[in-house]
Amino acid sequence: MRLQFHRALYAGSAIDQALQRFAALAHFDRSENATHFVVELRGLVDADGDATRRERRARRIGHALANLALGLTIERGGPDR
């Protein structure tokens, strides 16, 4: 699962903080390109359950991570300067 956060809209520090909070639940890779911060969810820490269930959990974690990254960005007043 791949998440992209536009650099003009999200704070990189907010994404890092969100990733730390979710590190206990999933394995992530973080990179960036000219326009976006990119987060790749490689797999779940707890890999129990069938594929459908895992897929559902991964999506939920991705969504929650994005919400937290946005919330933290807004609380910081926008992207890092």
């Binding site: 992209q4 536009h6 003009a8 809209l9 999200y10 969504h63 929650a64 994005a66 919400n67 946005l70 919330g71």
Partner: peptide, 11 residues
């Protein structure tokens, strides 16, 4: 809306 939905912004 973060409390009610999943919210993502892009440009």
């Amino acid at each position: 809306f973060i409390a009610r939905c999943w919210v993502v912004l892009d440009r």
